[in-house]
């Protein structure tokens, strides 16, 4: 095991972590700020990935992926807003239980519909020509597509930072994370805020789904796979903390990639072991939210 191998692993881990971040950041926002637990968040990711494969099959790798990157997150946004305003809104009153049931049911329904519509066989699309192949840095081969994932995620993270730090929505979200009870009391339209944050979260998952599609097989198991990891990331990063989620996502991605160098049975056990360890040592994750345990 030499340094170059470790470096390659770290880059791969960061790229994987970047995808985790895109899915987990939205989830941590709606959960941490607005108390909405959406088990079906991974369904947005899966829908986006399938939609991307369809567009690429129709329009070719270059144009198709570009179109997908623009159109698919918007479609997912519309879907999420429709779900929020027609279904989720009705169950907030009862606390998490209605949400757990609703989103669990949704997860099953979307999975069944995707299997019926797109088929159960794994799909695959190729990356655009200019993103195929690799670049060599310090003698390490890094896949161009992985770097593209990193670049895209970087841009999205910048936008997210801008959104949270500068916009009114961002201020409200931060306020909600700090003290959710105050928000309604000072006359903020929490209802509209929830819809907006759900939309933002879906767009993030949608982007992740599109850029993940050319990297590997797209099938009906990826929804649950990604959402379980996203929950682990959130827990490690601290509920409601976008930047905590970023650190945790990279940590999980890197730990998963590096662990495959030493143990020969895949990385998923590391994610859950890490999650259990963090919760054992710090029962509310790295970032403790004031006033809530």
């Amino acid at each position: 095991m030499d340094g170059r191998l470790i470096l390659a692993q770290v880059v791969a881990g960061v790229a994987t972590g970047a995808l985790y971040f895109l899915v987990a950041s939205g989830l941590t926002l709606i959960w941490g700020a607005l108390g909405v637990v959406n088990l079906a968040h991974g369904s947005f990711f899966m829908l986006a990935a399938f939609a991307a494969t369809t567009l690429v099959h129709q329009l070719g790798p270059g144009l198709g992926l570009l179109c997908a990157l623009v159109v698919v997150p918007l479609l997912v946004l519309v879907f999420a807003v429709a779900l929020e305003t027609t279904l989720f809104r009705r169950v907030y009153v009862g606390g998490i239980w209605g949400q757990l049931l609703l989103s669990f049911g949704l997860l099953l329904v979307v999975n069944d519909l995707v299997r019926t519509g797109f088929g159960a066989v794994s799909r695959s699309i190729v990356a655009p020509d200019f993103l195929q192949g690799f670049v060599e840095i310090f003698g390490v081969r890094l896949a161009k597509y992985q770097l593209a994932i990193l670049a895209t995620t970087g841009l999205v993270a910048l936008y997210l930072w801008h959104l949270l730090a500068r916009s009114r929505t961002g201020r409200l979200i931060r306020a909600a994370v700090d003290d959710p009870a105050m928000l309604g009391a000072v006359g903020v339209d929490v209802k509209a805020l929830r819809t907006r944050v759900m939309g933002i979260a879906a767009v993030l998952a949608g982007i992740a789904g599109v850029i993940a599609a050319p990297r590997g097989a797209v099938n009906t198991t990826i929804d649950v796979q990604i959402v379980v990891i996203a929950f682990a990331v959130i827990v490690i990063g601290g509920l409601g903390s976008v930047w905590g989620a970023l650190v945790a996502a990279l940590l999980v991605g890197i730990a998963e990639a590096l662990s495959t160098l030493v143990i020969d049975q895949g990385g998923e056990v590391v994610i859950f072991a890490l999650m259990a360890l963090v919760l054992f040592v710090m029962p509310t994750g790295f970032q403790t939210i004031a006033g809530r345990d």
Partner: peptide
């Protein structure tokens, strides 16, 4: 082969009608 669809819809319906079970 659509047990997921039916069970999912049932669970969603219950969530809306009986959030407390």
């Amino acid at each position: 082969e659509h047990s997921d669809l039916v069970v999912g819809l049932l669970v969603m319906g219950c969530a809306l009608a009986f959030p407390e079970g």
